[in-house]
Design a binder for these strands. Sequence first.
DNA 1: TCTGACTGTCTACAGTTGTAGACATATCGC
DNA 2: GCGATATGTCTACAACTGTAGACAGTCAGA
Lengths: 136, 136
Amino acid sequence: MPNEPSEPLAPAEWKVMNIVWRRKRCAARDVCEEAKGEHGWAPSTVKTLLRRLVEKGHLQTTQVGNSFLYRPTRPALRALERAADTLLRNALEGTVGPLLAHMVKRSQLSDDELAELRALLDERSDDDPLTRKGRS
Amino acid sequence: MPNEPSEPLAPAEWKVMNIVWRRKRCAARDVCEEAKGEHGWAPSTVKTLLRRLVEKGHLQTTQVGNSFLYRPTRPALRALERAADTLLRNALEGTVGPLLAHMVKRSQLSDDELAELRALLDERSDDDPLTRKGRS
DNA sequence: TCTGACTGTCTACAGTTGTAGACATATCGC
DNA sequence: GCGATATGTCTACAACTGTAGACAGTCAGA
């Protein structure tokens, strides 16, 4: 039982996972409904994706009557962080800063989030001696 | 001639692109050499990937003698930004802030980059009325 | 000019992903 | 108990991906 499913999510799988994450847990029917509305998918499509996600360890099931309740095995944030790590691994020398800048620009952030990020940046430049060259 | 290749890069394709991006432009041989060292790939593997990348519009070629010079059609940063956009599209309500925090933590950023990010954050909280609710 | 080395092209093939129909079966209401 | 409905399973199949061998054309050196 791999607690952290290692296999990355394919695009269609992200869509299904997002539906389940939003609802915390749900039945196949709910996913089918929402996926039909959002992506126009046939129920079979959703069912196949759910099955594969269970196989890969991204979803857990609990049997309820003749059906399953699907539940993510890890929080959405963790999956996002994994994907972000992959992204960063692909970032060449000097592109990380601009990349983060781009993402900040694209994002709606709350005041709290902005404050937390600011704090992080300050921490960075305070305690990382390698980056302490040009500041007074 | 699609100036911005829309098809996303597969993992193996990122690896090849990164080699070409680092060198700005190069011959297949160079890529083969580096890819062999880094990933243990056979030359055929590299050649297939180069061909597919050209087909998809990620690489351009210039014929030189009996061989090609491969050159990226867009800068690495742009490809990264596209991938980042996809990542953000998968981010649920409330996960974007923590996600960015995670990325900042994982990244080595220069003083200049830190300063630029800080400036961006300040700009955000200054001019976005939606986020100006809790601050004095 | 002949040949060897190198380059790109063709072909291959297994595994993954996107998409979905067919179908057996379990359940719940009557 | 029986049938209608819903649920999961099996099967399918094309496209994409990872990986690579075989081969043909070409350029340079002998």
